[in-house]
């Protein structure tokens, strides 16, 4: 399957197979002004299969959300048809209003107006904990 090369934009490569749709939803790419191509189950030498998202006319994304969802992805920034930057993301220290606490006893389930804030508890395992109740997000 072939998707035309993009001129100015972003290619998110090495997304774990099957995860591109989740990335699409969390990054609200349905609201993107440029063209968006989402490729799933692309053959990969390294991982067997991978997903790719190509964005033409989009130059900024919420890197924290992307790093949280696909920390091992590669981001290629394209300008005038050339790759001008390769980004390797790292897990953000804090996630605000990206995920919600699943602990039914957490104050966030009842208190209005609270931001859902998670702190990275362990960089190796990628575990985040709710700042209010300290429950791990799995």
């Amino acid at each position: 399957m072939k998707i035309d090369s993009i001129q100015n934009g972003i290619v998110i490569d090495h997304i774990p197979a099957g995860k591109a749709m989740q990335v699409y939803q969390y990054l609200k790419l349905d609201e993107a002004e440029g063209s968006v191509a989402l490729l799933q189950n692309v053959p990969s030498r390294k991982h067997g299969k991978k997903d790719i998202i190509k964005l033409d006319g989009v130059t900024e994304l919420d890197w924290n959300i992307l790093a949280f969802l696909a920390p091992d992805c590669t981001v290629n920034v394209i300008a005038d048809g050339n790759t001008v930057e390769k980004k390797h993301l790292k897990l953000p220290e804090t996630l605000t209003d990206v995920i919600v606490c699943k602990n039914p006893r957490c104050i966030t389930t009842v208190e209005p107006g609270l931001h859902h804030i998670f702190k990275l508890a362990n960089r190796e395992t990628g575990v985040y904990r709710c700042v209010y109740c300290e429950s791990a997000h799995n």
Binding site: N103, R105, C106, I107, T108, T109, V110, E111, L114, C130, V131, Y132, C133, E134, S135
Partner: peptide, 27 residues
């Protein structure tokens, strides 16, 4: 003391006087 975990922290974020957590759920 509150049955919701994290409630005293939320209280401390808004309170004009010191808050002591006297127990928040199983937390």
């Amino acid at each position: 003391r509150h049955f919701k975990e994290g409630a005293p922290m939320v209280a401390a974020m808004k309170s004009t006087v010191p808050i002591i957590n006297a127990g928040d759920g199983g937390h």
